[in-house]
Design a protein around this nucleic acid. Structure first.
Lengths: 331, 331
DNA sequence: TTGGGCTGAGAGAGCGCTCTCTCAGAAGGG
DNA sequence: CCCTTCTGAGAGAGCGCTCTCTCAGCCCAA
């Protein structure tokens, strides 16, 4: 009733276990007719190698931990990027026959759990998706002797290779677009400043405003729709004459559009709005949202390749992917 | 340089490997002072059990496959329910120290891969998230000698316990609400008929209409926003005098609202709209969407409990969770 | 005092696999 | 024709752990 072992395959094929193993692992030093006999036996018995036994001796597990370290705001969990990243990374890893072990690290308790698990050598490598700056996980994992890559630049300077999009450049693109279309009073709704994306996108905004001799008008949100609505109301109160706003992500931009509508401002006539991320919903806002697209899928696959490269002693250099301005109707 | 083994712990504590193992596994038959010595040794050496070795002998892996069998339309991947289900299930499984192995089964090739993997005994159980009817995976997996539970009733009759929400009842709730508010010509935008959700929600609609002596007006979408918009236009063409529409999911309802707006119909004055799912976006449509809420998180955790119960020889009865009408402004 | 029952701890087998070492036999060179 | 080289295949150790079996030592009743 038990699953067949290599021993059984060997017996059936009339060879030794070692030879059967060689066939299973595709070594060339097996005579064709013997290989065929073994393959037939494998097929007949429905043999599947026992991975526990295999990794016990090889010291490899062929599985990769995908650690999602979620910020307290939970914005990430509702973020469509979340599933896209996980999906893309999974597809890529499955293509090279690596298992994906999904781990959530939201509480300190689960942090400890993840650390213990990784330290336990259950996985060959770690892909870390961590978004908020105070996260102790990047530095904790970098101390372990396990290859780790990060989706997004870690907020604390730590020696982990990462893949990120050009947040600063993207924000510059957005604001420069507003400048070039003649907007004078360009505000921003920034993201949380303990997240890299929040920081960098604000930096990009500031850089362009400084260079174009405009005053910066800043409100801060937390990447949720509501916070975008609140921040927009606040900006309108602070400076009723503003004629453009760069919002650090699309979710907040949706909220901002709502507040603008409620305040009776026409978009883009009175106020131009540019978002960031190009989420699906950006196409369906009223008016459709001009935004910055960054290549989520590419970022995920680049992360996988970076990690796989690490296994073979490849370079540990960060990868920065370009962003792109998508012009719709809001600006 | 290698990770410490149980042998090392035993040596340091001055006991046998067997005793060290007893302590690690929390057996009571160890004298307190010896237990302490072992625990100290574990701590000092930073010992973590090797799971490969352990599962080699216990024949357990303590990991669960979360198989996402995606319909070709890819609607699921953009569905916010996707991440909610995965997240909830993960949290629940991690609480009982089970690993989550995420597997995507989108192509026939990856189907084979998943089957091979499951057959290989790499996991103790399978949670199957499969949405479209033609999926061969449920029946394939049910043949394997591995506990399997399904998120949502499998479309083909197959002997897998599942957790689902009451799609029929939910649809009835929605349509009955429209009837009770005096709507006369109630149309529906149904979901794909090769998905259980699509079928059942249409059934619920038909049941109530029949009982209340109204004619059914049906258009079919594929659960995407666009298809909802298209279907709505079609319905308006078919029966310009319709005064209500039950849409089988919120995504399509968003599209329908758009088409209604474009056609100059006021919601809910001219046409009442009820959706299904209560996704986040339903709160922010214009007007906010009346819809049917089903407990996604509860469904996911119930699925986990069902699977864990199976391990202990628990019942394999399907679990059906109730739905709830959420009244906003669209109906 | 002696024997039986019980408790706590060790010895050792074995889970299924890989991989080194060894060796038989064929091929090739002097 | 013999010795060396090479190739293909087997023997066997051992990865780190669990768990059964065994047994030493203790307590208590007879």
């Amino acid at each position: 009733m038990r699953r067949p072992t290599l021993e059984a395959v060997a017996a059936r094929a009339g060879v030794s276990r070692a030879t059967a193993s060689r066939v299973v692992n595709g070594q060339a030093t097996v005579a064709p007719h013997i290989r065929d006999a073994v393959l037939r036996a494998i097929d007949e018995l429905g043999y599947v190698p026992n991975s526990a036994a295999r990794s016990l001796v090889t010291q490899r597990t062929d599985s990769i931990a995908l650690v999602v370290s979620e910020p307290p705001t939970r914005v990430f969990s509702e973020d469509p990027l979340f599933s896209t990243v996980i999906r893309s990374a999974s597809v890529e890893l499955e293509a090279v026959n690596k298992q994906v072990v999904l781990m959530l690290a939201s509480s300190p308790m689960s942090h400890a759990r993840v650390e213990r698990y990784i330290a336990g050598g259950h996985v060959d490598g770690v892909m870390l998706i961590s978004m908020h700056g105070a996260d102790p996980l990047p530095s904790a994992l970098s101390r372990l002797r396990v290859p780790v890559v990060s989706y997004g630049r870690p907020a604390v300077p730590v020696d982990i290779p990462y893949v990120d999009n050009d947040n600063v450049g993207g924000a510059e693109l957005a604001v420069r677009h507003l400048v070039s279309t003649g907007r004078r009073r360009i505000a921003t709704i920034a993201g949380p400043q303990d997240m890299i994306g929040g920081q960098d996108r604000l930096t990009g905004y500031r850089t362009v405003l400084r260079d174009s001799d405009r005053r910066s008008i800043v409100a801060v949100g937390d990447f949720t729709r509501e916070s975008g609505a609140v921040a927009m109301r606040q900006l309108l109160g602070d400076d009723p004459s503003l004629d453009a706003v760069f919002v650090a992500n699309d979710l907040m931009a949706v909220g901002a559009l709502q507040s603008l509508r409620l305040a009776g401002r026409r978009v883009p006539d009175d106020v131009a709005v540019v978002g960031f991320d190009d989420i699906e919903a950006a196409k369906y806002t009223e008016p459709p949202l001009t935004t910055i697209r960054h290549p989520v899928v590419e970022q995920a696959t680049a992360m996988v390749r970076l990690l796989l490269g690490l296994f073979e002693g490849g370079p540990a250099d960060p990868v920065i992917l370009p962003t792109e301005l998508v012009i719709r109707d809001s600006a």
